[in-house]
Structure formats: structure tokens, C-alpha cells
Amino acid sequence: MPSKATLQDVANAAGVHRTTVSLALRDHPRIPAATRERVKAVANQLGYRINPLVAALMQTRRLGRRDRHVTLAFVTSYPTRYGWRPTHHDRPNFFPGAAQRAQELGYKLEDFWLAEPGMTSARFCRILASRGINGLLIGRLPPGLRSLNLDWNRFSCVALGLTLRSPVLHHVTENHFDTAAQAMQRCVERGYRRIGFVYSEANDSPSVGDRWLGAYLLHRNTVPKSRQLPVCPGDPTDEAKFAAWFRRHRPDAIIANHIPPLLPWLARLQVSVPDEVGLVGLESHSSVDCAGVRYDPAVVGALAVDMLVGLLHRNETGIPQSNQHEVLLTGVWHEGQTLPPRC
């Protein structure tokens, strides 16, 4: 196997000093733009990759820091600075668990906001490069945002959840297929016979809904056809569609991604929960003690840091071309108050 190109190899091929190569690859303004582009082209041709851990260590020494921690970036892009944190929404917060795991491994996790006023992708990448930050954890994207445009080749990257659709990075997420499969299994075990599926609110990651629905349909097809209910129309549905579907098919249990909207809808139909219909929530909500599968966001965050540190140690940067890794965390059943056994 041929040896990897070194900084000196790039310097020799470009006819410059190795310090010039180092500065050019970090887009240092001291190096003329034309020289930077030429050095980058030579580096790409030779297949040279900056070792992110060595680069961070050298940056620390250059700045005279005594901090032993290499910084990792937790990248967010919500419209507001901390819109990704509770109590601004009810989605899981992966940051605390990720920060704790980073500290245990000798790193420091710092949050960066892509929507900072005046921020551009190019400027953001320059800021990280100037600080010697080469590892990125991409937090959940806000509803409506599906892609990010960064200079990915500079960084080792791991995404949290499935909201980032482009580019497709290594990522860590909950085992959504298993969540719905567990829900169906619990309903059957407890004596429920007519189990329905409802998208009660829009989900910020369509592929998650596909996994939930796939598990539901797979298990639904194992019961007699007389008990196979159609999925409630609408993605998401609304109260009128839900009411018509419920009256026609009379489910005795409902699996839904969001439980809170269903409670007033059922109340207006004069249907009692859980006496007349059981409920299973595919996502947890602090306002409702609903039966369902629960995940510890701290564990998801820690797993993402473990994956990212592995990439850094192996000097793997950029968008994975054909071997994107997906780490799935399987959740634990939470009893709740909405799915009692049927007599």
C-alpha cells in the first residue's frame, strides 16, 4: 500500500516551504489567493489530508493556550440562537450528553450558530479553521431546512438525527422502526385488536415517518384482514379527517407520532382515553404521560461524540462517498397511562 502524502511532499511538489503549505490549506490571508489555490490543487492531486488532531494541537501551541481540550463544534441553525434547546421546543436535546462524553475523552464541545447575523458558510468555515476546530457535530435542523452547504472536506462530521438530508453524513439516531414495532407488539399483547396509525402533526424528518409506517404496516399485515385498518388520511392529518376515519373504522388503539393533538379531538368525539381507546406515542411529550418507547438523548449525544472522535483519529474527513455509517439506539418501553390491558 503506498504511503500517505505528507506536508513535505506537497511543499516539494508545489515548490514552496512547508509552512506556506500549512498556511495555504488553512486559508491564511498572509498567503496570496493564487498561491493558496495552487497549493490546494497540489494537495488534492497527491491525496494529502490534514490530520485534524495534529492541526488542533499545533493551533493550541501557536496561540499559547494551556487548555488540554481539543474543541469540537456543535453546529446549530435554528432561526434563534438557542432555538434548538428546550423549552423552545419539545424535541430531544442531545447537547448535554455529547458535551459530557466529549469532556470524558479530553475534548470540549462548543455550540456554534450558523444563523448568526452576517454569517456565511465560507466565513463560518474560516472561523473554525482559524481556531483549529476540525470535528463537527451537526445538530437537528429546524423544520423546513433539509440541507447545509459547508466546505465538508475540511472536517470530520457526524449528524444527529435524520433531519439533514443533504449531504448524507455519518449519523446517530433513534431506532424508529423498532419504536413502531414495539408499539404494535405491546398493543397486541394487551388485547387490542383494531390498531390504527395516525400522523397527527408534521414531522421534521420525513424518513423517520417512513420507518414508523414501515414497521406498522409490516406488523399490521400479520393479523386477519378484518382487523387491518387503513392509515388515517393526511400527513399530517387534521381534525375533520381524523374524525371521519375514527367513526368509520372504530380503532381500539391508536399509534401516533404526536399524542397531544389527539386528546381534544377524541374528547370532542366523546371518546374516553384509555377506557375506549388506547394511545401509544412514537415521540415523548412532557405534557402527557403516554405509553411509548423512550430514548435517552444523552446516550444519543454520547454515541455521536464517540463516532466523531473515531473519525478524527482515523483522519477521515469530508462527505463519505459509499459507506455512510448509521448508529441506531434502541429505546426502552415506558408504561405511561394510556395503554392498559384489555379484559
Results as ranks from 00 to 15, higher is better:
263 L>I: 15
131 R>V: 03
306 D>H: 08
189 E>I: 02
58 M>L: 14
320 P>K: 00
116 E>D: 11
208 V>S: 05
130 S>E: 15
13 A>G: 01
27 D>H: 14
269 L>Y: 07
118 G>S: 09
62 R>S: 14
155 F>W: 08
328 L>P: 10
84 W>M: 04
199 Y>H: 13
43 A>H: 08
176 H>P: 01
317 T>G: 05
168 V>K: 12
146 R>H: 14
229 L>K: 05
136 L>N: 02
290 C>P: 02
73 A>Q: 09
319 I>Q: 10
322 S>Y: 04
10 V>P: 07
330 T>W: 04
323 N>E: 15
20 T>W: 00
312 L>I: 04
173 T>I: 02
115 A>Y: 03
158 V>Q: 03
108 K>S: 10
72 L>P: 11
333 W>A: 10
294 R>I: 03
181 A>H: 10
319 I>S: 09
93 N>E: 15
74 F>I: 05
9 D>K: 01
240 A>P: 01
97 G>N: 12
254 I>V: 15
210 D>K: 05
97 G>F: 08
159 A>Q: 12
110 E>Y: 05
276 E>M: 11
30 R>S: 15
221 N>W: 04
272 S>T: 12
161 G>Y: 02
108 K>G: 00
343 C>Y: 02
69 H>Y: 11
113 W>Q: 06
189 E>N: 07
280 V>E: 01
294 R>T: 13
24 A>M: 12
285 H>Q: 11
228 Q>H: 11
51 N>R: 00
256 A>S: 15
341 P>L: 07
161 G>P: 02
29 P>L: 04
69 H>F: 11
282 L>A: 12
317 T>P: 03
166 S>K: 08
177 F>L: 09
48 Y>I: 09
270 Q>A: 14
239 E>G: 00
281 G>V: 06
223 V>A: 13
184 M>D: 09
32 P>A: 12
44 N>H: 10
224 P>C: 02
230 P>F: 05
228 Q>I: 05
139 G>P: 01
257 N>Q: 02
270 Q>I: 02
191 G>Y: 07
276 E>T: 02
250 R>W: 04
317 T>L: 15
263 L>H: 04
122 A>H: 08
